[in-house]
Design a protein around this nucleic acid. Structure first.
Lengths: 147, 147
DNA sequence: GTGATTGCAAACCTTTTGCACGCCA
DNA sequence: TGGCGTGCAAAAGGTTTGCAATCAC
């Protein structure tokens, strides 16, 4: 997973914020860093718990609003879930998801063959597609029924 | 959308309930029917509003619990969302989703070419895949930026 | 009859909102 | 300085839980 994060730099973060007229605050930087460092699609609360260690005074609200703001400008993603709190992702690489229907975990994977997924013509005409993802559902390693 | 629903019969519903030792109650039948008739991935509350017309005494709880129970035995699906309440789907056909990042709508589509999506070998070894879905993100017809 | 299911109410968790203060540009 | 962003507190929305009464089998 480590290499997935190579593309992120704080400089880039600052640049993108400027483009969108967003102020650079220590809180925003901290939230973004925490998200980039995680590979577990954390919820706002998980990020909050992490950031609080360095920023004891930060509020949950700020974390949540920052995540929504960053998602709004496309700097991070909101990940599809099957219930429960929103989960976020700073992984900008083309990747796909395994979803365990038992424990709810969402696991990233990359797969070249999915890169060229075509979009049906009728859809491309009406719908401006900005992202494609394959979601595989099933039971993860830990949740397989034992015999 | 009409044809998507052809496969559903109450007989089948009853049969599956029996297999799983679930009792057939009027509430369960009503909830299931309401879901089958909808093509909009309704939330528990949307189903509740519908069923209430015929069943003024049904409680939101019963609706919600019924949906979770049916999802638990695989008779219906919980649909991936990007925040907000759980959404359900009784469409058992192989289909895929358009997700509008603006209004949040999730739209079904079918596409033959996605039927044969391969699963990476490393994943097939560890992960018991029970479903595959392509999720396209973007702006729907209504939400396209106007010029 | 008996155990599963329902309806109700309270509790819980996440997200949203309004506002005054403080900080970044 | 001006306005955006933060922290706080309250409200709103969705989901879960416990329990007594009821219903399907």
């Amino acid at each position: 997973m480590q290499n997935l994060q190579a593309d992120y730099t704080i400089e880039r973060f600052i640049e993108t914020c400027h483009e969108h007229r967003l102020k650079i605050t220590p809180q925003r930087v901290a939230v973004y860093k925490a998200l980039v460092r995680s590979d577990r699609h954390p919820s706002a609360d998980m990020i909050f718990q992490t950031v609080k260690k360095d920023f004891p005074n930060i509020s949950y609200d700020t974390v949540n609003r920052t995540l929504l703001t960053l998602a709004g400008i496309g700097m991070i993603d909101i990940v599809e879930v099957f219930g429960g709190p929103k989960r976020f992702d700073a992984n900008r690489k083309d990747h796909h998801h395994l979803h365990c229907t038992k424990c709810g975990e969402i696991i990233d994977f990359e797969y070249r063959e999915y890169a060229n997924l075509s979009v049906p013509k009728e859809i491309a005409e009406k719908f401006q597609v900005t992202g494609k993802r394959v979601v595989l559902k099933g039971r993860c390693n830990m949740c397989q029924p034992k015999h």
